[in-house]
Design a protein around this nucleic acid. Structure first.
Length: 295
DNA sequence: TCCCAGGACTACT
DNA sequence: AGTAGTCCTGGG
Protein backbone atom coordinates (compact mmCIF):
# COMPACT_ATOMS: atom_id res chain seq x y z
CA UNK A 1 0.00 0.00 0.00
CA UNK A 2 2.95 2.28 0.51
CA UNK A 3 4.51 3.75 -2.54
CA UNK A 4 5.85 6.79 -0.77
CA UNK A 5 9.34 5.77 -1.75
CA UNK A 6 8.53 6.43 -5.40
CA UNK A 7 7.47 9.96 -4.62
CA UNK A 8 10.15 12.58 -4.75
CA UNK A 9 10.21 16.21 -3.91
CA UNK A 10 11.56 18.11 -6.88
CA UNK A 11 13.19 21.48 -6.49
CA UNK A 12 10.76 24.21 -7.45
CA UNK A 13 11.43 27.85 -6.64
CA UNK A 14 7.85 29.05 -6.23
CA UNK A 15 6.69 26.21 -4.02
CA UNK A 16 7.00 22.45 -3.84
CA UNK A 17 6.56 19.73 -6.40
CA UNK A 18 5.88 16.01 -6.23
CA UNK A 19 7.33 14.00 -9.07
CA UNK A 20 5.74 10.93 -10.55
CA UNK A 21 2.25 11.31 -9.16
CA UNK A 22 -0.12 8.60 -10.27
CA UNK A 23 -3.87 8.21 -10.16
CA UNK A 24 -4.45 11.92 -9.72
CA UNK A 25 -6.60 14.22 -11.80
CA UNK A 26 -7.19 17.56 -10.14
CA UNK A 27 -10.51 18.25 -11.81
CA UNK A 28 -11.91 14.85 -10.91
CA UNK A 29 -10.55 15.02 -7.38
CA UNK A 30 -11.53 18.61 -6.60
CA UNK A 31 -14.95 18.52 -8.23
CA UNK A 32 -16.36 15.20 -7.05
CA UNK A 33 -18.15 16.71 -4.07
CA UNK A 34 -15.62 15.98 -1.33
CA UNK A 35 -14.18 19.51 -1.06
CA UNK A 36 -15.53 22.97 -1.81
CA UNK A 37 -12.72 25.49 -1.67
CA UNK A 38 -10.72 24.79 -4.83
CA UNK A 39 -11.37 27.13 -7.71
CA UNK A 40 -10.31 26.46 -11.27
CA UNK A 41 -8.50 29.18 -13.19
CA UNK A 42 -8.52 29.83 -16.94
CA UNK A 43 -5.24 27.94 -17.36
CA UNK A 44 -6.66 24.86 -15.64
CA UNK A 45 -4.77 25.30 -12.40
CA UNK A 46 -6.62 25.37 -9.09
CA UNK A 47 -6.32 27.88 -6.27
CA UNK A 48 -7.46 26.87 -2.84
CA UNK A 49 -7.09 27.32 0.88
CA UNK A 50 -6.28 24.20 2.88
CA UNK A 51 -5.80 24.35 6.65
CA UNK A 52 -4.78 27.99 6.51
CA UNK A 53 -2.49 27.58 3.49
CA UNK A 54 -3.32 29.33 0.23
CA UNK A 55 -1.74 27.63 -2.79
CA UNK A 56 -2.08 27.09 -6.52
CA UNK A 57 -1.88 23.55 -7.82
CA UNK A 58 -1.39 22.11 -11.27
CA UNK A 59 -0.05 18.98 -12.91
CA UNK A 60 2.65 19.13 -15.54
CA UNK A 61 4.53 16.21 -17.03
CA UNK A 62 3.32 13.87 -14.33
CA UNK A 63 4.39 16.16 -11.51
CA UNK A 64 2.13 17.91 -9.03
CA UNK A 65 3.16 21.50 -8.48
CA UNK A 66 2.02 23.29 -5.34
CA UNK A 67 2.84 26.94 -5.85
CA UNK A 68 3.10 28.67 -2.50
CA UNK A 69 3.65 25.37 -0.73
CA UNK A 70 6.43 25.42 1.86
CA UNK A 71 9.13 22.74 1.86
CA UNK A 72 8.45 22.02 5.54
CA UNK A 73 4.86 21.19 4.56
CA UNK A 74 5.87 18.26 2.36
CA UNK A 75 4.36 15.73 4.75
CA UNK A 76 1.24 17.82 5.14
CA UNK A 77 0.57 17.84 1.39
CA UNK A 78 1.56 14.23 0.98
CA UNK A 79 -1.07 13.38 3.55
CA UNK A 80 -3.65 15.77 2.06
CA UNK A 81 -3.37 14.14 -1.36
CA UNK A 82 -3.29 10.69 0.20
CA UNK A 83 -0.04 9.79 -1.57
CA UNK A 84 0.66 6.89 0.78
CA UNK A 85 -2.34 5.03 -0.60
CA UNK A 86 -1.88 2.98 -3.74
CA UNK A 87 -4.98 3.71 -5.80
CA UNK A 88 -3.85 1.52 -8.69
CA UNK A 89 -3.92 -1.50 -6.45
CA UNK A 90 -7.30 -0.56 -4.98
CA UNK A 91 -8.78 0.06 -8.42
CA UNK A 92 -7.53 -3.34 -9.51
CA UNK A 93 -9.12 -5.05 -6.52
CA UNK A 94 -12.41 -3.21 -6.93
CA UNK A 95 -12.60 -3.97 -10.66
CA UNK A 96 -12.21 -7.66 -10.11
CA UNK A 97 -15.52 -9.46 -10.72
CA UNK A 98 -17.39 -6.17 -10.85
CA UNK A 99 -18.20 -4.73 -14.27
CA UNK A 100 -20.08 -1.78 -12.84
CA UNK A 101 -17.11 -0.63 -10.80
CA UNK A 102 -14.80 -1.32 -13.72
CA UNK A 103 -16.78 1.13 -15.84
CA UNK A 104 -17.13 3.62 -13.00
CA UNK A 105 -13.38 3.61 -12.40
CA UNK A 106 -12.70 4.25 -16.09
CA UNK A 107 -14.88 7.37 -15.80
CA UNK A 108 -12.96 8.84 -12.88
CA UNK A 109 -9.63 7.09 -12.58
CA UNK A 110 -7.94 10.23 -11.24
CA UNK A 111 -10.12 10.59 -8.19
CA UNK A 112 -8.35 10.55 -4.83
CA UNK A 113 -9.83 10.90 -1.36
CA UNK A 114 -8.35 14.02 0.19
CA UNK A 115 -7.45 14.07 3.88
CA UNK A 116 -9.12 17.27 5.01
CA UNK A 117 -9.31 19.12 8.30
CA UNK A 118 -12.01 17.56 10.54
CA UNK A 119 -13.72 20.71 11.83
CA UNK A 120 -14.00 22.39 8.45
CA UNK A 121 -15.24 19.12 6.99
CA UNK A 122 -17.80 18.75 9.76
CA UNK A 123 -19.30 22.20 9.25
CA UNK A 124 -19.10 21.95 5.47
CA UNK A 125 -21.05 18.72 5.38
CA UNK A 126 -23.66 20.02 7.81
CA UNK A 127 -24.16 22.72 5.20
CA UNK A 128 -24.38 20.07 2.48
CA UNK A 129 -27.64 18.68 3.85
CA UNK A 130 -30.40 19.08 1.28
CA UNK A 131 -28.21 21.52 -0.59
CA UNK A 132 -26.46 21.90 -3.94
CA UNK A 133 -22.77 22.14 -4.57
CA UNK A 134 -22.74 25.79 -5.75
CA UNK A 135 -24.69 26.81 -2.66
CA UNK A 136 -22.38 24.83 -0.38
CA UNK A 137 -19.36 26.50 -1.96
CA UNK A 138 -20.88 29.92 -1.55
CA UNK A 139 -21.73 29.41 2.11
CA UNK A 140 -18.25 28.06 2.93
CA UNK A 141 -16.60 30.95 1.09
CA UNK A 142 -18.71 33.48 2.95
CA UNK A 143 -18.05 31.92 6.33
CA UNK A 144 -14.33 32.01 5.57
CA UNK A 145 -14.19 35.56 4.23
CA UNK A 146 -16.39 36.99 6.98
CA UNK A 147 -14.88 35.17 9.94
CA UNK A 148 -11.58 33.58 8.85
CA UNK A 149 -8.06 34.98 8.89
CA UNK A 150 -6.76 36.79 5.79
CA UNK A 151 -3.99 35.12 3.80
CA UNK A 152 -2.08 37.04 1.14
CA UNK A 153 -1.19 35.04 -1.94
CA UNK A 154 -0.30 36.15 -5.47
CA UNK A 155 -1.35 39.68 -4.59
CA UNK A 156 -4.83 38.65 -3.56
CA UNK A 157 -6.42 38.06 -0.19
CA UNK A 158 -7.78 34.63 0.70
CA UNK A 159 -9.30 33.50 3.97
CA UNK A 160 -8.83 30.48 6.20
CA UNK A 161 -11.82 28.53 7.45
CA UNK A 162 -12.47 29.82 10.99
CA UNK A 163 -11.68 27.84 14.14
CA UNK A 164 -14.43 26.35 16.34
CA UNK A 165 -13.82 29.09 18.91
CA UNK A 166 -14.69 31.74 16.33
CA UNK A 167 -17.80 30.06 14.96
CA UNK A 168 -19.09 29.18 18.42
CA UNK A 169 -19.34 32.85 19.35
CA UNK A 170 -21.39 33.87 16.32
CA UNK A 171 -25.08 34.64 16.29
CA UNK A 172 -27.55 32.75 14.18
CA UNK A 173 -28.04 35.78 11.96
CA UNK A 174 -24.30 35.82 11.18
CA UNK A 175 -24.68 32.40 9.60
CA UNK A 176 -27.93 33.36 7.90
CA UNK A 177 -25.94 36.05 6.09
CA UNK A 178 -23.75 33.26 4.77
CA UNK A 179 -26.78 31.54 3.28
CA UNK A 180 -26.79 28.64 5.70
CA UNK A 181 -30.56 28.80 6.19
CA UNK A 182 -32.11 26.23 8.49
CA UNK A 183 -28.65 24.75 9.10
CA UNK A 184 -27.47 27.86 10.96
CA UNK A 185 -28.55 26.73 14.45
CA UNK A 186 -26.99 23.29 13.78
CA UNK A 187 -23.65 24.87 12.85
CA UNK A 188 -23.76 27.08 15.91
CA UNK A 189 -24.62 24.31 18.34
CA UNK A 190 -22.09 21.84 16.95
CA UNK A 191 -19.35 24.49 16.91
CA UNK A 192 -20.12 25.28 20.54
CA UNK A 193 -19.95 21.65 21.60
CA UNK A 194 -16.62 21.25 19.83
CA UNK A 195 -15.21 24.54 21.13
CA UNK A 196 -16.19 23.59 24.68
CA UNK A 197 -14.56 20.21 24.35
CA UNK A 198 -17.79 18.23 24.77
CA UNK A 199 -16.98 16.64 21.44
CA UNK A 200 -13.32 16.13 20.48
CA UNK A 201 -12.92 15.38 16.79
CA UNK A 202 -9.30 14.25 17.21
CA UNK A 203 -10.48 11.63 19.69
CA UNK A 204 -13.40 10.53 17.55
CA UNK A 205 -10.93 10.11 14.70
CA UNK A 206 -9.05 7.48 16.70
CA UNK A 207 -12.14 5.37 17.36
CA UNK A 208 -13.27 2.41 15.28
CA UNK A 209 -15.73 3.50 12.61
CA UNK A 210 -18.91 2.27 14.30
CA UNK A 211 -18.11 4.04 17.53
CA UNK A 212 -16.91 7.18 15.75
CA UNK A 213 -20.10 7.26 13.69
CA UNK A 214 -22.20 6.95 16.83
CA UNK A 215 -20.39 9.93 18.37
CA UNK A 216 -20.73 12.11 15.29
CA UNK A 217 -24.48 11.69 14.88
CA UNK A 218 -24.93 12.93 18.43
CA UNK A 219 -24.04 16.37 17.07
CA UNK A 220 -26.74 18.63 15.66
CA UNK A 221 -27.08 18.60 11.91
CA UNK A 222 -25.16 15.36 11.52
CA UNK A 223 -27.10 12.30 10.39
CA UNK A 224 -25.93 9.02 8.89
CA UNK A 225 -24.76 10.35 5.54
CA UNK A 226 -23.02 13.49 6.82
CA UNK A 227 -21.25 11.45 9.50
CA UNK A 228 -19.99 9.04 6.85
CA UNK A 229 -18.67 11.95 4.78
CA UNK A 230 -16.80 13.36 7.78
CA UNK A 231 -15.33 9.93 8.50
CA UNK A 232 -14.25 9.36 4.91
CA UNK A 233 -13.02 12.84 4.01
CA UNK A 234 -11.30 13.88 7.22
CA UNK A 235 -10.81 10.88 9.49
CA UNK A 236 -9.11 8.36 7.24
CA UNK A 237 -12.00 5.93 7.41
CA UNK A 238 -11.93 4.47 3.91
CA UNK A 239 -14.43 1.83 4.97
CA UNK A 240 -17.16 4.49 5.33
CA UNK A 241 -19.83 4.39 2.62
CA UNK A 242 -21.83 7.64 2.44
CA UNK A 243 -25.15 7.15 0.66
CA UNK A 244 -26.50 10.28 -0.94
CA UNK A 245 -29.15 10.37 -3.64
CA UNK A 246 -26.68 9.60 -6.45
CA UNK A 247 -25.13 6.64 -4.69
CA UNK A 248 -28.62 5.49 -3.80
CA UNK A 249 -29.60 5.61 -7.47
CA UNK A 250 -26.51 3.86 -8.79
CA UNK A 251 -26.71 1.16 -6.14
CA UNK A 252 -30.40 0.56 -6.73
CA UNK A 253 -29.81 0.50 -10.47
CA UNK A 254 -26.85 -1.88 -10.60
CA UNK A 255 -26.72 -3.82 -7.35
CA UNK A 256 -30.03 -3.82 -5.49
CA UNK A 257 -33.79 -3.52 -5.85
CA UNK A 258 -35.16 -0.07 -6.71
CA UNK A 259 -36.89 0.31 -3.37
CA UNK A 260 -34.32 -0.70 -0.76
CA UNK A 261 -33.77 1.63 2.17
CA UNK A 262 -30.76 3.89 2.66
CA UNK A 263 -29.65 1.81 5.61
CA UNK A 264 -29.70 -1.39 3.56
CA UNK A 265 -27.68 0.29 0.81
CA UNK A 266 -25.13 1.49 3.34
CA UNK A 267 -24.83 -1.96 4.93
CA UNK A 268 -24.53 -3.59 1.52
CA UNK A 269 -21.82 -1.17 0.36
CA UNK A 270 -19.70 -1.63 3.46
CA UNK A 271 -20.09 -5.40 3.33
CA UNK A 272 -19.31 -5.73 -0.38
CA UNK A 273 -16.47 -3.22 -0.73
CA UNK A 274 -14.98 -3.58 2.75
CA UNK A 275 -11.92 -1.50 3.52
CA UNK A 276 -12.24 0.35 0.21
CA UNK A 277 -15.96 1.11 0.40
CA UNK A 278 -15.42 4.86 0.52
CA UNK A 279 -13.20 4.86 -2.55
CA UNK A 280 -15.68 2.66 -4.41
CA UNK A 281 -18.39 5.10 -3.39
CA UNK A 282 -16.52 8.00 -4.98
CA UNK A 283 -16.16 6.20 -8.31
CA UNK A 284 -19.81 5.17 -8.25
CA UNK A 285 -20.97 8.64 -7.23
CA UNK A 286 -18.99 10.21 -10.05
CA UNK A 287 -20.27 7.66 -12.54
CA UNK A 288 -23.89 8.16 -11.52
CA UNK A 289 -23.66 11.92 -11.91
CA UNK A 290 -21.89 11.83 -15.26
CA UNK A 291 -24.44 9.42 -16.66
CA UNK A 292 -27.37 11.03 -14.84
CA UNK A 293 -28.48 7.64 -13.63
CA UNK A 294 -32.01 7.60 -12.33
CA UNK A 295 -34.21 4.78 -11.18
C1' DT B 1 -46.12 30.20 -9.10
C1' DC B 2 -44.72 25.75 -8.15
C1' DC B 3 -41.24 22.27 -7.51
C1' DC B 4 -37.20 20.32 -6.25
C1' DA B 5 -32.16 19.59 -4.70
C1' DG B 6 -25.73 15.63 -3.24
C1' DG B 7 -30.47 15.15 4.43
C1' DA B 8 -31.72 15.97 9.22
C1' DC B 9 -34.98 16.89 12.71
C1' DT B 10 -39.14 16.24 14.97
C1' DA B 11 -43.24 14.03 15.82
C1' DC B 12 -45.62 10.68 15.15
C1' DT B 13 -47.13 5.11 14.46
C1' DA C 1 -37.60 0.56 14.45
C1' DG C 2 -39.56 2.85 10.63
C1' DT C 3 -41.97 6.64 8.24
C1' DA C 4 -44.26 11.52 6.89
C1' DG C 5 -43.94 16.58 7.07
C1' DT C 6 -41.09 20.51 7.36
C1' DC C 7 -37.05 23.22 6.49
C1' DC C 8 -33.53 28.12 3.84
C1' DT C 9 -32.41 29.06 -0.79
C1' DG C 10 -32.31 29.87 -5.71
C1' DG C 11 -32.69 28.09 -10.30
C1' DG C 12 -35.63 25.77 -13.82
Amino acid sequence: MNRGAEMELKKYEEGICFEGVKDLDLKETFECGQCFRWQEDEDGSYVGVVSGRAVRTFIKNGSLYIKGGRPEDEEFWKNYFDFDTDYSEIKCELSKDDDTLKKAIECGSGIRILNQEPFETTITFIISANNRIPMIRRSVERISSYFGKPIEFEGKTYYSFPEPEILSKLKEEDLQKCGCGFRSPYILETSQRIAQGEAVLEEIMKMPITEAHKELIKLKGIGTKVADCILLFSMKKNEAFPVDVWVKRVMQYFYLAPDVSLKKIRDFGMERFGQNAGIAQEYLFNYARINKINV
